[in-house]
């Protein structure tokens, strides 16, 4: 055992942690609790205490966390599918309630400290739902798509960020990848989200209107997460779809049919 006085260490740690916490009056009805917890952008978590009848201390974020997430995410999607399940699971595991968009815990003076940690843990986990999803769809997805593509098609048969110059304003309608095709060039698009799905619909419509000769293959991050109407419009103008990169054998089979591999 190292030569450390556990009691002194505990006291030092407690003093340091207490020094990071401050309670201040925000309004006559609301106390704010400042802690070292921050969102990834450096903004401090917003934790408040409202005193309710019966001596209940309601710890609440006053609805800030969901508002913060809404800067970059459609928070309605936290109420649907997998995200909704994870959102509910986090609330359940941390015993956090949601009232009109506010995350809260009804506490007491004896339990306040541990409940602040629980609410902080819930805010972290809920924020990570958005962060992890965004990271996966916007960054890793394109990397994974590139890797999957080059596992099947030789690099010399592929042109990234291709512009179909025979069309007016070609630079407004970029094509993720142009692949040498057996019958016609294959235009491949990665679709990590709803915005990209709408963009690709427009690009494909313009290509068709310009009578471009091509076959299209669309690879989704998660096809099931797209609204039906967006997917329907995209289906009407596309040739082949891959529901996710997890369907790698289907991706390979379809690409091998369409592309020149040697």
């Amino acid at each position: 055992m190292m030569n450390i006085d556990v009691d002194i260490l505990q006291k030092t740690l407690c003093d340091a942690m207490c020094g990071e916490v401050r309670v201040r009056e925000k309004t006559p009805e609301i106390l704010a609790v400042d802690t070292p917890f921050t969102f990834p952008d450096g903004d401090q978590y917003q934790l408040y205490i409202k005193v309710l009848p019966g001596g209940i201390l309601r710890l609440t974020d006053m609805g800030h966390t969901l508002m913060h997430l809404s800067y970059e995410h459609d928070i309605d999607r936290f109420r649907e599918g997998t995200r909704s399940m994870l959102f509910d699971k986090i609330k359940s595991e941390t015993s956090v309630d949601e009232r009109e968009g506010a995350l809260c815990i009804d506490s007491s003076p004896d339990h306040l400290a541990i409940d602040i940690f629980r609410l902080g843990q819930a805010i972290t986990s809920i924020s990570d739902l958005g962060f992890l999803k965004r990271s996966r769809v916007e960054s890793t997805f394109y990397d994974d798509l590139r890797e999957s593509l080059f596992r099947v098609v030789p690099a010399e048969k592929v042109r990234k960020d291709y512009l179909y110059e025979s069309m007016d304003n070609a630079s407004d309608y970029p094509i993720d990848y142009r692949i040498e095709g057996r019958e016609a060039p294959v235009f491949l698009f990665g679709i990590p989200n709803r915005d990209k799905a709408k963009t690709v619909t427009i690009i494909l419509e313009h290509l068709l209107r310009a009578n471009a000769a091509f076959e299209s293959i669309l690879v989704f991050s998660d096809q099931s997460s797209l609204p039906r109407a967006d997917l329907a419009r995209l289906t009407n103008v596309s040739d082949t779809m891959i529901s996710s990169l997890d369907a790698e054998s289907d991706f390979r089979r379809k690409l091998e049919k369409m592309a020149q591999l040697n």
């Binding site: 309004t27 609301i30 917003q46 006053m62 800030h64």
Partner: peptide
């Protein structure tokens, strides 16, 4: 974005 809770008028972005 504007927080709608009473007392949170300064929470906007």
């Amino acid at each position: 974005r504007q927080n709608l809770a009473e007392g949170m008028e300064d929470d906007f972005s």
